[in-house]
């Protein structure tokens, strides 16, 4: 009996030793290891836009993103216009990531025959231990290319009347795997407004977020509240704050964003300050963004090992 106890004691001893051995080897690996790099948090949002406006996400360096955005007409137009599907507007855009912190993009919208360009710069990156949020700057310029209006003799139509500028600071935090929120203080400068009654500058604060409901599907929301110039009229109509809700669906190389929004405009200046439809009147627009990315420059670091054993 005593022997059995001793033997079992001995075996348990050997077992613990063997176990401790792989642990101590693991400790040796960890000891001399370079300290864990300050882990930047990734994928705060699925796409570079939350719905209409920019998210803090940048494209990877050397990545080209072909985007088609579609906003249908008002849902309350009734069966006559097939609930808005007959009056769709589109923006076609190409975005490119120059570095991992700088991306640029160009686009053309059907509405107002507008050309736009933007740049987005990542200033701070949220870290797992450290920096609590990500911060980016996004600036865009848009040019309306509709024909100049008929003016009384003597008045000159200036090219600069067609220009609009937007500056945004994007501050976002990924609170958990599922939940990310973003704030975007914004100023839009309208070179031309309807009347001298209105300011050329609109200050706004945007808020947006997403809740992931599965690995590939997220529910999104976005709201731009105008702090100043909210009474601005556009083409003689009152304007409203833009409110949008949507769903992001990721399918490999594509991201589909489906949304309902009161804004039919797709450029920053048009949805922030020139949204003439209102949720309370049911004048909503169904729409979608489709994003397809292409790798132009392969990321550094991926090099398939060569040699027979790697075949």
């Amino acid at each position: 009996m005593r022997k059995i106890i001793l033997l079992s004691f001995l075996f348990s001893g050997v077992f613990t030793l063997a176990h401790a051995q792989s642990d101590s080897l693991m400790d040796m690996l960890n000891e001399g290891a370079a300290p864990m790099k300050k882990d930047a948090v990734s994928a705060t949002f699925k796409a570079t836009r939350i719905i209409n406006g920019s998210s803090v996400e940048n494209l990877g360096a050397g990545t080209l993103d072909f985007r088609i955005s579609h906003r249908f007409g008002q849902l309350n137009q009734g069966a006559q216009n097939f609930f808005g599907l007959d009056n769709a507007t589109t923006r076609i855009g190409l975005d490119y990531g120059i570095t991992k912190w700088l991306m640029i993009g160009l686009g053309h919208s059907v509405l107002n025959k507008e050309d736009d360009g933007f740049a987005k710069i990542k200033l701070l990156r949220q870290q797992k231990y450290g920096m609590p949020f990500t911060m980016s700057y996004a600036g865009s310029v848009s040019i309306q290319t509709t024909p100049a209006p008929q003016l009384p003799a003597g008045d000159k139509w200036l090219f600069t009347n067609n220009l609009y500028y937007t500056h945004q600071v994007l501050i976002a935090r990924k609170f958990s795997d599922r939940i990310s929120l973003q704030l975007m203080p914004t100023v839009v400068h309208y070179n031309l407004v309807d009347s001298t009654k209105f300011s050329n500058n609109t200050f706004a604060i945007g808020a947006g977020g997403r809740i992931k409901v599965s690995k590939r599907i997220a529910v999104t929301g976005e709201y731009y509240y105008r702090i100043t110039n909210a009474n601005m009229q556009y083409n003689g109509q009152p304007t409203y704050n833009a409110v949008s809700i949507g769903v992001d669906i990721e399918t490999g190389g594509h991201v589909f964003q489906l949304m309902v929004t009161n804004s039919q405009g797709l450029s920053d200046r048009s949805f922030i300050g020139q949204t003439t439809d209102s949720w309370t009147k049911g004048a909503l627009h169904f729409g979608f963004n489709i994003s397809r990315v292409f790798t132009v420059v392969k990321p550094k670091g991926f090099k398939k090992p060569v040699g027979k054993s790697w075949e």
Binding site: A43, L59, G60, G97, V293, T295, P299, F302, K303
Partner: peptide
């Protein structure tokens, strides 16, 4: 490391 940035993101 991957051949495409998006693969890296999806992998992680």
């Amino acid at each position: 490391k991957f051949e495409k940035e998006l693969m890296t993101e999806h992998f992680n």
